[in-house]
Design a protein around this nucleic acid. Structure first.
Length: 511
RNA sequence: GCGAGGUUAGCUCAAUGGUAGAGCAGCGGCCUUUUAAGCCGUUUGUUCCGGGUUCGAGCCCCGGACCUCGCACCA
């Protein structure tokens, strides 16, 4: 029976009642659009076609075929229908996946009546199909597939976003990332690059003898950073666990165990506010290298980031653009990257900064337009100036060295100037992207520093870690690299949400 | 947690306190090489939720939810 939808207008009424549908996803029965798509399911079934088809072997992906196009090929291509041009007896539609699109040309004379009816009355933009046919070029010069067989692989029961404007609502972009990926070329590009960059970081380190390891995410003591942890509970052991805030203390145990070069590239969790630069879970690289120091680690990160930029950004001069395609920022990664001491950077703001009294520094901060809360210590006033007037305004790479020890209590002190520590803090794109250390390996000093840091909360001391250190950790360089922020810098994303597939949002009210 | 702005059709967005609209998508029609296809016709609403003021509220007031931006938190 030729059961085109237009021939049976009562059909959809049978399927207006949502009460039989699954309860997980609420189906707004009031929407005629959704009802029509559901009704088409029965049109399709009446044709003897499975609306959620099975296996379909392919010869090409849509974008591959378009890139390496030749006429006269017999091809089978799988993709989602993303646009449609109806010319009557001739139908044009684009078949796309994340990597690209190819145009399909379907003429009534080339297919059977069932497939023609299927296309005209059963299929919508958004459906997944497999097409089979021969390649050719249209009069307009468009590489195309002349379809001789059409297989429906999945009926889409909801319409796709606007074909021209795409998805712009940031909440939908994040919460329903699949729609963002379908609609927005830039998001597809960003997440493809992220995946390739992460793979490249692994390859880069493995090529240089670093071994990737996995250490606990559930920790009895959350150490290695100063941040509030998430708390959970182990039922069988009846004890609290913390989601790790850093892998550092476990990676250092591995140095004690004799691994000369290790890294971990995975998630950390910090129970803090969400912002343009912060997600509660974020991806961090930590690498440790026995015998190295912070300078060696600085060279390593500089070389690695430049390789990533050359590979994925077409060079070392990056241009960030907004939605309108206007250049909003340029970043020059050409080597060597600037290295400067913390105090020298502050003297560039005010040559006499360190000659002032603490009171005068507060006044001066106000004059410079930097807000200082009364509770701040003197060194925090200086740090506030650094963050607002140096870090946030530095876009080209800058290694900040000789950092005051108050700011980084767990690093090795400088031999010549004990008031500073042997670290770098790499600032690019107005953010700290990577810290690097000459790691502290004196167990006695380490215990005292941890005790000072812990203050009242002595139970937060990681005794297992200190025990390991007493067995001897080789001197080592270590680095951290915020992968999300790195990807932001390399792709020009303005928010961390634009480089994390599923960033955290407040739970939607399901009532 | 604090401050500012926002929430209208499936999507992108309009609407001096006076009949809730456009484009796209959808639906019907025409067209056998189109591509933001075109042309003709046409449908679609809990204006975020709950109160209030008013003859009358998408618009004004109060409360709430959520989103965005900023601040705070953040080795």
């Amino acid at each position: 029976m030729p059961a085109g939808f237009r021939h049976c207008p009562d059909f959809y009424r049978l399927f207006m009642d949502p009460s039989s549908s699954e309860s997980a996803a609420p189906v707004p029965s009031e929407s005629e659009l959704l009802a029509l798509r559901r009704a088409k399911l029965e049109v399709i079934r009446a044709l003897g076609v499975d609306p959620f088809g099975g296996r379909f072997d392919v010869t090409h992906r849509p974008g591959e075929l378009r890139a390496a196009f030749a006429e006269g090929l017999a091809v089978r291509v799988l993709g989602r229908i993303t646009s449609w041009r109806d010319m009557g007896k001739t139908q044009f539609f684009d078949v796309s996946d994340l990597g690209g699109r190819i145009q399909a040309f379907l003429n009534a004379k080339n297919v059977g009546e069932t497939e023609w009816t299927l296309l005209k009355d059963g299929i919508d933009i958004g459906d997944w199909v497999g097409i089979e046919g021969e390649t050719f070029v249209t009069k307009m010069g468009e590489p195309s597939v002349k379809v001789t067989a059409l297989t429906l692989l999945s009926k889409s029961l909801r319409p796709l976003p606007d074909k021209w404007h795409g998805v712009t609502d940031p909440e939908i972009k994040s919460r329903q990332r699949y729609l963002d990926l379908v609609a927005n070329e830039r998001s597809r590009d960003t997440f493809l690059k992220r995946s390739l960059m992460v793979a490249e970081i692994r390859r880069y380190l493995q090529d240089r003898g670093f071994l990737e390891v996995e250490t606990p995410m559930l920790q009895a003591v959350a150490g290695g950073a100063a941040a509030r942890p998430f708390v959970t509970h182990h039922n069988a052991l009846n004890m609290p666990f913390y989601l790790r805030i850093a892998p550092e203390l476990y990676l250092k145990r591995l140095l004690v165990g004799g691994y000369p070069k290790v890294f971990e590239l995975n998630r950390n969790f910090r129970n803090e506010g969400i912002s343009r630069r912060h997600n509660p879970e974020f991806t961090m690289l930590e690498a440790y290298w026995a015998g190295a120091d912070f300078r060696v680690m600085a060279d390593l990160v500089e070389d690695m980031v430049c390789q990533l930029a050359e590979k994925f950004c077409g060079g070392l001069r990056l241009e960030h653009t907004n939605a309108a395609g206007e250049v909003t920022r340029t970043i020059n990664l050409e080597r060597p990257w600037r290295r400067a001491a913390y105090k020298d950077l502050l003297r560039e703001i005010d040559p006499s900064w360190f000659d002032y009294s603490p009171e005068r520094r507060r006044e001066r901060a106000a004059e410079l337009g930097v807000e200082i809360s009364p509770a701040m210590e003197d060194y925090e006033v200086t740090q506030q100036i650094f963050e607002k007037l140096i870090e946030e305004k530095t876009f080209d790479p800058l290694f900040v060295t000789h950092v005051p020890k108050e700011l980084v209590p767990l690093a090795r002190q400088n031999v010549d100037d004990p008031s500073v520590v042997d670290v770098y803090e790499l600032v690019i794109n107005g953010q700290e992207i990577s810290p690097g250390y000459s790691e502290l390996n004196d167990p006695v000093v380490q215990r005292q520093r941890l005790l000072d840091q812990a203050g009242e909360e002595v139970q937060s001391l990681d005794e297992e870690f200190l025990l390991a250190l007493e067995h001897g950790m080789p001197s080592a360089g270590g680095l951290g690299l915020g992968v999300d922020r790195l990807v932001m810098m390399l792709t020009g994303a303005e928010s961390i949400r634009d480089v994390i597939l599923f960033p955290h949002l407040r739970a939607r009210d399901q009532g």
